[in-house]
Design a protein around this nucleic acid. Sequence first.
DNA 1: GCCCAGGGAATCG
DNA 2: CGATTCCATGGG
Length: 288
Amino acid sequence: MKYTEKDEKIIMTEFDSFDIEEILECGQCFRFNKLGNKEYVIIAMKKVLHITQEEDKVIFYPCGKNEFEKIWINYFDLERDYMKIKAALSSDNVVKNAIEYAQGIRILNQEPWECLISFIISQNNRIPMIKQVIKNISEMFGEKSGDYFLFPDIDELKKADTDSLMSCKAGFRAKYIMDAADKISKGQVDLSRASALTAEQAREELMSIKGVGPKVADCTLLFSLGKSEVFPTDVWVKRVMEYFYFGGKDTPIKEIHKYAYENWGNYAGFAQQYLFYYARSLKIGAKK
DNA sequence: GCCCAGGGAATCG
DNA sequence: CGATTCCATGGG
């Protein structure tokens, strides 16, 4: 991968495994808008960033070299060797097909606080609604930046009460969001240290927050705390796993986790992303 | 164990 | 078209 700065733009070339559409549409993040074909604006890390992908280059703007190196290289996981991961996972024929279907997926390294709240909101919810609720919360509690509102930090969201969160359409998750803000501001859950813990320890700590079960915890671990061995298992992943690996039989999530970890180890989280995108696009295992 | 919570999208009849 | 289902978690 190479990049150069020109007129407040970063132009990335000679890259592999990067498709902005697949990265953003695979269910790992929610604060982005599609502006055109392979043209997006994303609101993250206290910034508003435009991304346009062409044949053999990706343009990030407004963005200088300093900001790119400080924030976005890590955010887009650009230093990781995805060719190596894909080669390793391709010994499994099912995952191999899933990879061929979406070779440009990357797992973002998101901001843990925003990621946690986003996945609390995601429970029992659909992507368009999740995006709407997060947008409402940002507009009510976050800081304005250009045409957009940034996601509120902990102190800003601490001001939220049940009524205001209900008016953001958070529904029954409002009390969960308040418990997360409360426990984190008191230091009972420490997101800044969570990536240093084992996945198991960090999961347990996250699950001490009301409304954070295994699924929400695993999404936070994988998408913001660098725990690539976890295997977030929503209905789609459960169905695609049962379809391909368990003879279509209803299988406990524990057993699916065990299978994923034994077969894919520290790459289980990557396998999950390829399988999720594959399952949703082809509606594999979907209820008729 | 079972139902409900708030809500709109998706799917059904 | 209206009716039903979906979704992840905790509480009653």
